[in-house]
Design a protein around this nucleic acid. Structure first.
Length: 902
RNA sequence: GCGGACGUGGUGGAACUGGUAGACACACAGGACUUAAAAUCCUGAGACGGCAACGUCGUGUGGGUUCGAUUCCCACCGUCCGCACCA
């Protein structure tokens, strides 16, 4: 697939000696630019000079550019190349613009793959992880990223997680971390808790065992404490994609409603006297026809004890839980518990209480009142069990009302706005007024001495459970003592390190079965106690790493001065797959760290701007027998419709499949290493930036990379030609510049202006197009002669090289040296735009007749409306188009357009 | 079902706050150079009609607002993504 370019031997110029003279006098048939060789050279120059080391310096304006740090899987993939290239362009550009730029890199290094590798290959997770980090770091370095590597850290290192344990303890002290009983997916074979995404069709992804729901004491962070603020502050994130903000808002899921207590008749099990339900539609209370509770609701559990039929039904619901049946069985099912409730507005109105399969224990109170006429689920349920359906809301318009009622009778709930009917004192009120009327009334009414109802804001968001029963994660620094209960590990005993001699050969948590690790003395009373063996969710590690980068060597989790200076992150770049969890958790951590005294409480939001880049996609290939093939395993012939693929090893035809996200399973992978070795990092970077808008998917094609490679060689040849045609370095601007020279200068300045703005706006593909345009202009100008053109050429090429710098930094350094400089281009400021040259004194405007373009007109920029109108009407093409009709109106928008209405 | 985004040549895409649609690139065709090829350079190209000048049509479909709509509004079609018994 990747056809290696044959690099001609090209004597490397030593940096210190590479002046223009080194190149002068060489033949015009210049050598090809040897990217791989020169790239290594410049990387070592940057490294030896510490070119990208950053210090905290409040005297300078700062810019914090961050790409989501990688999981050390062992190899980088094209998605990384795209992500880190974008960040690097911005970081280098901002540096050139005079900003003190923080652009760090680290490793999201805890997590299951290391433990799985340990089980499969008998390597210790730490060994596996650090080996992967070393390999990936070398790959990232070969990309030539302007990263301050002195700030690098891995989250699995005790020097990092020690501080995370400190944060946990301080959050614990503030009540933001706590232990509660909650349901987990338990894999009985692997003896482990599974994340939801590890449960496939109700079975463990690894063992295939039927997953059980178990109650277990689990640590959690109180993210719900900030639910309102997390929604509220979304409004301030105007540099975040709308899409992400909407997803977060839905995820938090705020809804305003009413908690209503219903009295139960004496016969309820366990002596229960009331049932509390949550509703967002208290206005429909007169349409109620039943109550329904979740199978795990305490009242349902009590009813199950008394009634075997209820028990059997509840058990059935539990089994359905996570399986695919959830999706298939939209069918509403329930069982009457025999319990009877009294309507809060009418003591004589009795309603049955059902256990129903569509009620979730986790949402609201796990109990509802059913109003079939105005809720689709309730109407399905009511029709299945013969319960009454009474409309209480209807449109005002008579026709619409009749239709709505007919639909309700046919089984479709009416859920839109309207006015109240069949609702006594509320009749005629609109839905919102009815909500308030009934809320006011029920808040004043009492049941057993307490108000019947209270207003409640409910959230879909639940507290963040962080307990994981695994080895390769940050230990939770808590000790359990029989006498003292939960005891925090004293700060001076941190970190609680993972034991190195764990065994991974059997299922279950290695920390649990370690012979000695968990046994300690209670820090409070000194009696034998045990350590918490749960470790933290790896999302915790990534929820504050961007803070740690501001001073990765601080003795405390955060150095206040450094954090105050650098935060928030000015531009965060990563995949859309983290739109919800990672970003929400980081936003929570920023607030929680403020409360716990580790961040300035005024800092609410960690990421001022967010950009979500698209994926890298590629064609897929299958062999005759249906096996996926690597792109390197097929050969192509023909074009378009006649394009055919052949499997190289067998000579049999291969099938060309759809374009999909690069993945191991579909084998449509291109290895960044191969590309960098054959074409160079600059070529990969340039291709990643060209053509596709960064937020959309980019299709990786051989032709596209080759095209990028050709442009690199073209630029290199251009520099060769410039040597004889451009003015020498440092020549003063001549007093006289001819029209060609001026035109080139204008093009140069215009490009400078637009490329800068497009990089700032992350519209890299547009910036690339403009750089192509300028190089085309320069090429064209080479064949011309004009006063001062040699000077204008020099300016154009120097600026071109500087503008290419952030995108193809190695090539740009090489060109910069070839232009005669012995400074680093990476240290050069971005050229100042000469604003005066951005406006031409003549403009070409379109001339329309009745809205159709007929001609164009070049006039002085300052031309008066009347002048333009007169000139337009004289145009032969305009006269022809008017066909003698009277001119009714002429619209002249100066510098834009003329439209003749006839 | 709910929510969001997107629909422009053969392809990826560009077009500032409503003002010359198709920049730039890829692919393609013709030409130059070459013994030949590769590389490179030049030229062409939205569709249809025409030798040409030029004309007609054209930004998913159908309407609307406007002197003027890829851009704003309404309806529909299609594609993609997120959430989904959320009371």
């Amino acid at each position: 697939m990747t056809r290696p370019i044959l690099w001609a031997h090209y004597a490397p110029s030593l940096f210190a000696h590479s002046t223009a003279n080194t190149y002068r006098g060489r033949s015009m048939a210049a050598e090809r630019y040897n990217a791989p060789e020169r790239e290594q050279h410049w990387q070592s120059v940057w490294e030896s000079r510490g070119a990208f080391r950053t210090t905290t310096d409040p005297a300078k304006p700062k810019c914090y550019v961050l790409e989501m740090f990688p999981y050390p899987s062992g190899r980088i993939h094209m998605g990384h190349v795209r992500n880190y290239t974008m960040g690097d362009v911005l970081a280098r550009y901002k540096r050139a613009r005079g900003f003190n730029v923080l652009h760090p890199m680290g490793w999201d290094a805890f997590g299951m793959p290391a433990e799985n590798a340990a089980m499969e290959r008998q390597t210790h997770p730490a060994k596996w992880t650090y080996a992967n980090i070393a390999a990936m770091k070398a790959q990232l370095k070969s990309m030539g990223l302007a990263i301050d590597w002195t700030r690098e850290f891995a989250t699995c290192d005790p020097s990092y997680y020690r501080h995370q344990q400190r944060l946990f303890l301080d959050m614990y002290a503030k009540g933001l971390a706590y232990r509660r009983s909650s349901k987990v997916n338990w894999d009985p074979v692997d003896q482990t808790v599974l994340a939801n995404e590890q449960v496939i069709d109700g079975r463990g992804w690894r063992s295939g065992a039927l997953v059980e729901q178990r109650e277990r004491l689990q640590w959690a962070f109180k993210i719900t404490e900030f639910a309102d603020d997390l929604i509220e502050a979304l409004g301030t994130l105007d540099k975040w994609p709308e899409k992400v903000r909407v997803m977060q808002e839905n995820w938090i899921g705020r809804s305003e409603g009413l908690l209503i207590r219903w009295a139960l008749d004496g016969a309820a099990p366990n002596g229960a006297t009331e049932l509390e339900v949550f509703t967002t539609r208290p206005d429909t209370l007169y349409g109620a026809s039943f109550l329904a509770i979740a199978p795990d609701h305490p009242l349902a559990l009590a009813a199950a004890e008394a009634n075997p039929a209820v028990a059997a039904f509840s058990e059935e619901c539990r089994r359905m839980g996570t399986s695919l049946a959830t999706i298939e069985s939209a069918e509403k099912k329930g069982i009457d518990t025999g319990i009877v409730a009294t309507h809060p507005l009418d003591p004589n109105w009795k309603l049955p209480v059902y256990v129903a399969n569509f009620i979730l224990m986790d949402y609201g109170t796990g109990a509802i009142f059913g109003c079939p006429a105005h809720d689709q689920r309730d109407i399905e349920f009511a029709r299945a069990y013969g319960l009454p359906v009474v409309p209480v809301v209807a449109p005002t318009d008579a026709k619409a009302r009749a239709r709505a009622i007919a639909e309700i009778e046919a089984g479709t709930a009416y859920v839109d706005d309207g006015v109240m009917i069949n609702s006594q004192f509320m009749d005629g009120l609109d839905v919102k007024a009815a909500f308030n009327a009934i809320a006011d009334r029920l808040e004043k009414a009492t049941l057993a001495g307490k108000p019947v109802a209270k207003r409640k804001i409910n959230y879909r968001l639940r507290d963040w459970g962080i307990s994981r029963q695994r080895y390769w994660g940050c230990p939770i620094p808590i000790i359990h003592c029989g006498d003292c209960g939960e005891v925090p590990v004293p700060v001076d005993q941190l970190p609680v390190k993972l034991p190195e001699d764990a065994s991974f050969s059997e299922p279950g948590n290695p920390l649990d079965r370690h012979p000695t690790w968990r046994h300690v003395d209670c820090p409070k009373c000194g009696k034998p106690a045990t350590r918490e063996t749960d470790t933290m969710d790896t999302f915790v590690d990534s929820s504050w790493y961007f803070v740690r980068f501001t001073d990765p060597n601080a003795d405390t989790p955060v150095d206040q001065a450094a954090a105050d200076y650098w935060l928030p992150v000015d531009q965060y770049i990563g995949g859309i797959e983290h739109a919800i969890l990672h970003l929400l958790y980081s936003r929570f951590f920023t607030r929680a760290m403020g409360v716990a005294g580790h961040l300035n409480p005024k800092l609410k939001e960690p990421f001022a701007a967010l950009f979500t880049q698209g994926m890298v996609v590629h064609e897929t290939y299958k062999s005759a027998d249906g096996a996926w093939l690597l792109p390197t395993e097929v050969r192509f012939e023909g074009e378009g419709d006649t394009r055919r693929a052949t499997e190289i090893s067998t000579g049999k035809p291969a099938q060309i499949g759809s374009i999909e996200k690069m993945s191991k399973s579909k084998k449509n992978l291109v290895d960044p290493d191969d590309i960098i070795q054959h074409y160079g990092a600059d070529c990969a970077r340039w291709f990643m930036l060209s053509d596709s808008p960064p937020e959309r998917d980019v299709i990786w094609t051989e032709a596209g990379v080759a095209g990028a490679g050709r442009f690199i060689q073209r630029l290199w040849r251009l520099l060769g030609e410039i040597e004889t045609k451009a003015a020498p370095k440092g020549t003063a601007r001549p007093a006289e510049l001819g029209p060609e020279a001026m035109a080139l200068r204008r093009a140069t300045q215009k490009t400078l202006d637009t490329v800068g703005r497009n990089i700032e706006g992350l519209r890299f593909n547009v910036a690339v197009a403009q750089l192509y345009e300028l190089s085309n202009e320069v090429s064209a100008a080479l064949g011309k002669a004009d006063a001062g053109l040699d000077w204008a050429l020099r300016e154009a090429v120097e600026h071109l090289v500087q503008m290419i710098g952030p995108m193809m930094p190695h090539l740009a350094e090489e060109c910069w040296a070839r232009l005669g400089y012995n400074t680093l281009l990476a240290d050069q400021p971005w050229p100042q735009v000469e604003g005066a040259l951005l406006v031409d004194d003549h403009v070409t405007i379109a001339v329309q007749v009745n809205g159709k373009r007929r001609d164009e007109l070049t006039v002085a920029r300052s031309a008066a409306k009347e002048e333009i109108e007169a000139a337009a009407l004289k145009l032969e093409s305009v006269v022809r188009a008017i066909e003698g009709r009277p001119v009714r109106k002429v619209i002249v928008v100066p510098q834009r357009i003329v439209n003749v209405v006839a």
